[in-house]
Design a protein around this nucleic acid. Structure first.
Length: 109
DNA sequence: AACTTGACGAGGG
DNA sequence: CCCCTCGCCAAGT
């Protein structure tokens, strides 16, 4: 497991139940001079894991699950999130203003 | 080493 | 609102 991915997983696993983060947001936080993170590479890293675990709380900036089409019998991610209290509209979107989680500062003052 | 792919995102039509 | 294009960068072939 590369350090690159590990950082993504570590951050994603901190997302509390009932909250979500977007790929772009994670990329924004982890991006540094040493390791270039983009929304796409973050999303790609998630794919490498699979759709299980706390990473289900990571969705795209439109408030949608990117794992397959909306409400299909295989979209595990949305089902998981709904079971955590997140509501999706008929087009498969949730209110990011309401569910987006902002991680606490890492650095020590 | 080069080319292609992709669970993304912003902007334009 | 939806659809398309461009930019982005790690991994797989």
């Amino acid at each position: 497991m590369s350090e690159y991915r590990e950082r993504i997983y570590r951050l994603a696993s901190q997302i509390p139940k009932g909250r979500v983060m977007t790929y772009g947001q994670i990329a924004e936080i982890l991006d540094s001079d040493e390791a270039k993170y983009t929304a796409q590479t973050v999303g790609w890293a998630m794919h490498a894991i699979g759709d299980t675990g706390p990473w289900a709380r990571v969705i795209n900036a439109q408030g949608r699950c990117s794992t397959g089409r909306v409400m299909l019998p295989g979209n595990k991610q949305q089902t998981i999130l709904e079971s955590e209290g997140i509501e999706f509209d008929s087009s498969g979107r949730c209110n990011l203003e309401k569910y987006l989680w902002i991680p606490p500062e890492e650095k020590g003052s």
